[in-house]
Design a protein around this nucleic acid. Structure first.
Lengths: 124, 124
DNA sequence: AATGTCCGTCTACACCTGTAGACTTGCTTC
DNA sequence: GAAGCAAGTCTACAGGTGTAGACGGACATT
């Protein structure tokens, strides 16, 4: 459920669209990250071994599908991150961002709206 | 400015109270993490080499001080985390948490209050 | 002065991560 | 059927990380 940076780049593509062939992924990651085909192949193998991807044979090649859901990985990563830096709490994170002027007014408003919605259809 | 989990444990103690001797840190981390003295010593060396700590000689031993500020490390870590998982935005993080019922009502209220305060003394 | 203590430094080692070349083998095309 | 292409697998290797033992020398204690 833990994904290093480079493997995450692969997963991100497959979370947007699946299945994909290695060819497609190699092309995209070659463009966006400048990776050699071998690099992408290695990452695919590692992801399959750890169970993050499913590879289904289609003739000579494989089709790759995510086996881990993005939302689960996000939850995991978020928990770890908040634990590490903010005692597991969200509010201190927001306080930090606002104190350091990293919270743009637009973002602040979006957040306020989101919270208002949450308050209204509480258990919806 | 990047700190792995284990080094962060050391920094966290020194951010709470500085300076401290290795002895003090070894004791605390021995209790909380079950680390051997050697482990703590290694981490201290690594932190000094990378410039995260300052070590000032005091007779036979060293006094250790943070050379990196916690808030800077937090900012760095937060940026990286938000970039990796939420397109660099805070709102999607909050949305995710609320969708997954990880946002306790108390936390939601605390957040709402914080935002209200921000809105009021905007540039204070 | 001899000896023991303790601190900091060196060395160690396995596993993870980033990055990629070499090789094998099954299809495809002439 | 031979030759080539390409997909997947093996091997590689440096640097980071978690974890810790061994060692050398400065101080303290007898």
């Amino acid at each position: 459920m833990q994904l290093p940076e480079s493997e995450l780049a692969v997963m991100d593509l497959l979370w947007v669209e699946a299945p994909q062939t290695s060819e497609s992924l190699i092309t995209k990651l070659g463009e966006t990250r400048g990776w050699q085909p071998s690099t992408v192949k290695t990452l695919l193998s590692r992801l399959v071994s750890k169970g993050a991807l499913r590879a289904e044979r289609d003739g000579r090649r494989f089709m790759y599908w995510p086996a881990w859901q993005r939302s689960q990985c996000v939850s995991q990563a978020t928990r770890t991150f908040l634990e590490s830096w903010f005692g597991g709490q969200l509010t201190p994170l927001v306080a930090h961002l606002s104190q350091h002027r990293t919270l743009r007014p637009a973002e602040r408003k979006a957040l306020a709206n989101l919270l208002r919605d949450l308050e209204n259809n509480r258990d919806a």
